[in-house]
Design a binder for these strands. Structure first.
Lengths: 188, 188
DNA sequence: AGATACATGTAATACGTTACATGATTTT
DNA sequence: AAAATCATGTAACGTATTACATGTATCT
């Protein structure tokens, strides 16, 4: 628990960043998995600084703008992160997806309407998959020759998970469209 | 948002239940996806009753125990649920899994240690998969001949998703164990 | 002229988890 | 004799989302 702090450390382990940068990263590139608001980022950064896990690298001031405070990971921060990575992982994962709950109620509605819902969701995941595959192609090129101690390796692992997840989701949609379709059209 | 109310309605759409029953169902059979505490269930039940989506079917009183209040879905509750099911679904799903965040940091630690982590997680998902497959075999038997308007159809859809998810997770673990393994043993 | 990006931060609100309180019965 | 089960509910806490406040430069 309290994974956000580790999310912040994970990003800072790769490069120095400001709170704003972190927010952008999480809601952008790493978006599929995590999202944060500024209210979580800034206080947590202060805490981490207080604990000596990160340190203020520098402040970029543009006079008309709030100071841009860039943080970097300290050695003890790097240690804490590595320790956490190797800790026995929480086996409880949530997998709370509204749509799955909707599917649980598929028996309540007209098959044709449920099919339409499934198709809509399917399209959404197709788009996501396509985006991930694009990124992946790029990444794989950059990855050649690099060893597993390169940060890109971690990026690739997460991206790969995302790709597999989207594929699996799509197949599930297809399967249940098929099942519901066979039903409605079947005994005529 | 506020999916818990729909989770409660989803269960009550199948059979009348008490708050306690609901809690047990969610943390047991439907456990992989949802969990709730009593503090969420009881207030929400009161709210739903106030809105006329559910009604008190009866109270079982055993003198030495708190009254067991059993609720059932009303017609307007069933309508509200069906409407929600057909609403354009939220495309934002979280997929927040601590272990994926750990994997993002795999480059920070010794490959052999990460492999051990992956193997541990793999075992966990193997066990889950086995449990789901058991349930699924049972379900498929009970399902034969039933149409898509049977609640079991919804159960099957969710279970199927769980099975696919676990399989996908396993494959991902295997792939990354392989990749890290090939690394360490490779250029010797 | 108006919206968006930059950049920090706070406040209000919603959602979720853990722990507590009660109290007899049944299981270990 | 101790612990778990049943059954409701409240309280305290922790985490997350949304909105707000500030203020200039740049893009449309």
């Amino acid at each position: 628990m309290n994974s956000i702090r580790y999310a912040l450390l994970s990003l800072l382990a790769r490069e120095p960043l400001s709170g704003y940068d972190i927010k952008q990263h999480m809601n952008g590139r790493l978006g599929p998995f995590w999202k944060v608001g500024s209210n979580q980022v800034y206080p947590e950064l202060s805490k981490l600084e207080g604990e000596g896990l990160i340190r203020l690298l520098g402040v970029e001031q543009l006079s008309y703008r709030p100071a841009r405070k860039v943080y970097e990971l300290t050695d003890s921060g790097r240690e804490a992160l590595a320790e956490w990575v190797l800790e026995p992982a929480e086996t409880e994962f949530s997998l709370r997806d509204d749509f799955i709950l909707k599917a649980y109620n598929l028996w309540l509605v007209e098959p044709e309407q449920m099919i339409r819902q499934l198709e809509r969701i399917q399209q959404h995941h197709e788009a996501k998959l396509a985006a991930y595959l694009d990124k992946s192609a790029e990444l794989e090129r950059a990855l050649s020759g690099k060893t597993s101690s390169d940060p890109l390796y971690g990026t690739a692992a997460v991206l790969d998970f995302g790709i597999r997840h989207e594929r699996q989701y799509l197949e599930w949609c297809q399967e249940w469209i098929r099942r519901l379709d066979g039903e409605g059209a079947g005994p005529k």
